[in-house]
């Protein structure tokens, strides 16, 4: 499914409409495609580049710059674990270990059932609730290692 779907095109057009030019919508366009396809493969990147009249290389430079644009496959749910100093001093290493153990997958990998991918994130900005993590759009914290498997169960 390399070509953009009509739904994707409509969402991208809506972004372009509120901006001075099409290229300003590049990040939103990539997010749109990611919302529909979970991640941005090379074909999708090419299709967006063509649609916005950018070179693939130009768009790749943008896609690879931002932490929340995924250029590799991810599971149905994405777990973002805060990896910054406030969470670190409150024991996030143990939470990360518990997460890898529960998932049976390392950071960056997709679990065998296609359900999860965990990614370390630079500071989630929830420092007063550390150690913090996000699953999809939900912020959780403070999270103790023992809480991890129960938390994951809420995301079938």
């Amino acid at each position: 499914m390399a070509a953009l779907s009509s739904a994707e095109r409509a969402e991208i057009d809506a972004e372009i409409a509120i901006l001075p030019d099409a290229r300003s919508a590049s990040i939103e366009a990539l997010k749109t495609v990611q919302r529909h396809r979970r991640w941005i493969d090379d074909d999708a990147l090419g299709a967006v580049a063509e649609y916005l009249d950018l070179s693939k290389h130009e768009l790749e430079a943008i896609a690879s710059f931002y932490n929340l644009l995924f250029r590799k496959p991810v599971g149905r749910h994405v777990v973002l674990v805060c990896d910054s100093v406030s969470c670190w001093i409150l024991g996030n290493e143990a939470v990360k270990q518990a997460l890898e153990d529960s998932l049976g997958a390392a950071f960056g990998e997709v679990t065998r059932d296609d359900r999860f991918t965990a990614l370390p994130m630079q500071c989630l900005g929830a420092c007063d609730r550390g150690p913090a993590l996000m699953i999809d759009e939900d912020l959780h914290g403070p999270v103790q290692p023992a809480d991890v498997s129960e938390l994951l169960r809420r995301y079938p």
């Binding site: 910054s84 406030s86 630079q122 900005g125 609730r129």
Partner: peptide
């Protein structure tokens, strides 16, 4: 774009 580690007020 509050992202300086330690900062969680604008949120």
């Amino acid at each position: 774009d509050e992202s300086e580690p330690g900062t969680c007020k604008d949120r």
